[in-house]
Design a protein around this nucleic acid. Structure first.
Length: 643
RNA sequence: GCGCCCGUAGCUCAGUUGGAUAGAGCGUCUGGCUACGAACCAGAAGGUCGCAUGUUCGAGUCAUGCCGGGCGCACCA
């Protein structure tokens, strides 16, 4: 509701400023520093003071006089040096919230594509991957909440070096046949087995020339899709993808489609992109220097300052394409610009509808987005710049502008967390503020381990408070709490903050955490449940609470502030979409939880003797619960029935 | 060397695109369960917003320069 009224007030101001001063820009509104100043502050007079050469206060007075009555506004006050503070008409505001004004989400233009997760399918997912997936999934939920059509893609690099490394481990170090690997897949935590094997292989490379040849051979076999090595590659990648999908689904994370590197390769996506790039002069064949014989893109395309002859290799001198080249082809496909498409087959084992790219199968309308968000960590910003430059060099200016690198900083481990996890650190690492996770060194926290640990801890808590409930029910609640704790922890930091992962902090259920939010929602539900227990029915709020009743009840300053906070949910999500910051939704959710807990503490709803007040407090409770649950849903957190 | 990011309370972090008296969680200290469940609430202590210039009515926020830290800058992905 808040954003609804805010918008109409902003428009009223803008119309007046336009008519009176010929200023076309709609000055934004702000939150007053103190709640006592009112609900909105308009600083327009400050900006106008410069051009009009008049004191801001005098201008503010002119604006207020000229504006007259604005619907929904009780008073306009001039404060400080020239702020115009707006006070809402509380009665009509309450009535409008009850009616549900402004709750409907608007829909916008074309389809948005969000690509996230993108984990190499060669080992278990770790906390770094979790940040990517949770950020991406939450952003998707935010976009959908604000009425956008969104397609979620999870790109699978099933033919890359990392998969090859694990195949090398199975085939050459452990001498395993495809049949034996199949047994491992069926009988073990296969992603965990590969986690260890990958670290072992990486170590082996350091002192073995022979191993490096194994790698080259394996990579070639996988790319050509021939022989036992290629078979092993498929086995490993497909099995690990399934593990990743399971891990992510535990957190409520789902995808629409899995484009795969193998199809990009075998369906000649690159060849098509290569034609375009050559044709339009986006890349050229280098004839001299260190990159002689390579097709390169000039650095001037993607760098502000670049040295003479500086360039990025797209096609190697041996004719093979680099990762960036493939990524350009893939990005073109996402916008429907490639002139080629995948076929798809449905993955039957998944609990939701999911399609995977395939050489043959059904045609589907995936891709063809109007805007593309790539959730990729900030270390790859250079490569993302090159991809965008590729589009620009092909004269796809519009699509280049709509290619958004949704970047985030890495998750590292605090030295204390390493100690907690029994990870040995070098003297150098111990002195650092944090230590980078490394799959090659096997250094990190597996996503499922962390989740299991959280569930175990949550279960103890739930069990101690709800010993009378059936065990499986408590178990389900514990899982919801663990997911909330984990997701909230990943979301509470802004994207460009390096998270120094601390196990003890991540395991905490008190303070600014997911469970805190769930607890507020549970408390709200409990009041309403208790009402039913005592034989009371939910009143007809519309009949009991006319505008005058709202005006009376909301005369209580504290209750007014609480209602105001709850009604800001929609505008909080919209602002967060605008700034591209899921953490803003998380932060709002926490404030909302705090507001409800204050309400809960101060106003005993069911014991309220006055009939109108009781109805009002009950309505507030129901409204709070609804807003809390809606916000949690955007964060991908469930509200348990009890906890 | 070049590019990007960061430096705010003891610790971990916010700060709504330049606005009014810089906030939260954790930790510390004090108080609150005869319950709509205390995974909570109320309160206290805690700040030279890295340093220095500048821009203007106004700077944690913008510019420049330093200091300190991180990450990139492959014919790897």
């Amino acid at each position: 509701m808040f954003h609804h009224l805010e918008k109409s007030i902003t428009e009223a101001f803008a119309a007046l400023l336009e008519a009176r001063y010929g200023v076309a820009i709609a000055w934004g509104t702000e939150q007053p520093k103190q709640a006592a100043f009112g609900e909105l502050a308009v600083p327009a007079a400050f900006q106008l003071a410069r051009t009009l050469k008049k004191p801001p206060r005098a201008i503010a007075q002119e604006i207020v006089d000229g504006l007259g009555a604005v619907p929904g506004v009780a008073a306009l006050e001039i404060a400080g040096n020239g702020y115009i503070n707006v006070r809402f008409d509380r009665g009509s505001y309450g009535e409008a919230v009850l009616r549900g004004d402004g709750d409907a989400s608007r829909s916008s233009g074309g389809k948005l594509i969000v690509e996230h997760t993108n984990i190499n399918p060669n080992k278990a997912a770790h906390i770094g991957h979790l940040r990517n997936a949770v950020l991406g999934d939450t952003f998707v939920r935010m976009l959908r909440f604000t009425g956008n059509q969104v397609e979620v893609q999870n790109y699978i690099d099933n033919t890359g070096v990392q998969v090859a490394d694990v195949v090398v481990g199975f085939r050459f170090l452990e001498k395993k046949s495809p049949a034996q690997v199949r047994e491992l897949i069926a009988g073990t935590r296969f992603d965990y087995v590969c986690w260890d094997l990958y670290a072992k292989v990486s170590q082996h490379y350091a002192n073995s020339e022979e191993a490096k040849q194994w790698r080259a051979r394996t990579l070639h076999a996988i790319e050509a899709n021939e022989g036992e090595l290629a078979e092993l590659g498929h086995l490993v990648a497909d099995a690990i993808v399934r593990c990743h999908l399971n891990t992510m689904w535990r957190l409520g994370i789902a995808y629409d489609v899995l484009p795969r590197e193998s199809e990009i390769l075998h369906m000649q996506f690159w060849a098509k992109a290569f034609e375009q790039l050559k044709e339009r002069g986006a890349i050229y064949l280098e004839t001299e220097g260190k990159n002689q014989g390579c097709w390169v893109m000039a650095a001037t395309a993607f760098k502000e300052q670049s040295e003479e002859g500086d360039s990025k290799v797209i096609v190697r001198s041996n004719g093979t394409v680099t990762y960036v080249g493939k990524d350009i082809a893939y990005q073109l496909w996402k916008f429907g610009l490639l002139g080629k498409d995948f076929r798809y087959r449905r993955l039957q084992q998944e609990p939701y509808e999911l399609w995977v790219a395939s050489g043959e199968g059904e045609e589907k309308a995936f891709g063809r987005g109007s805007r593309v968000y790539n959730v990729i960590d900030s270390r790859q910003s250079y490569l993302q710049d090159v991809v965008v430059a590729g589009l620009r060099a092909l004269h796809y200016e519009e699509q280049a502008k709509n290619s958004i690198h949704f970047s985030y900083e890495m998750v590292a481990l605090s030295p204390r967390a390493c100690a907690d996890l029994g990870i040995e650190l070098s003297e150098e690492d111990k002195r650092k503020a944090y230590v980078e996770v490394s799959g090659r060194k096997g250094l990190g926290v597996k996503a499922d381990d962390l989740l299991d640990k959280l569930i175990e801890k949550a279960y103890e808590e739930v069990q101690s408070r709800n010993g009378d409930q059936p065990e499986d029910r408590n178990r389900a609640v514990a899982e919801q709490i663990a997911v909330a704790a984990l997701r909230y922890f990943m979301l509470k930091f802004t994207r460009n903050t390096v998270i120094a992962f601390d196990l003890q902090e991540a395991l905490s259920f008190t303070g600014e955490t997911g469970p805190y939010l769930q607890y507020a929602a549970v408390r709200a539900s409990k009041i309403l449940a208790k009402l039913a227990d005592r034989g009371g029915a939910m009143p007809d709020f519309a009949a009991l609470l006319p505008r005058e009743a709202f005006a009376r009840q909301l005369g209580d300053e504290e209750l007014w502030q609480l209602l105001l906070e709850a009604s800001k949910m929609e505008s909080a999500v919209e602002r967060a979409v605008g700034s591209g910051e899921p953490s803003h939704v998380a932060r709002f959710a926490f404030q909302l939880g705090q507001a409800f807990n204050t309400f809960y503490q101060k106003y005993p709803v069911l014991d309220e003797p006055d009939a109108e007040r009781r109805a009002f407090l009950l309505w507030m409770t129901a409204y709070f619960r609804s807003q809390l649950e809606r916000t949690l849903r955007v964060l991908g957190i469930q509200a348990p029935e009890y906890m």
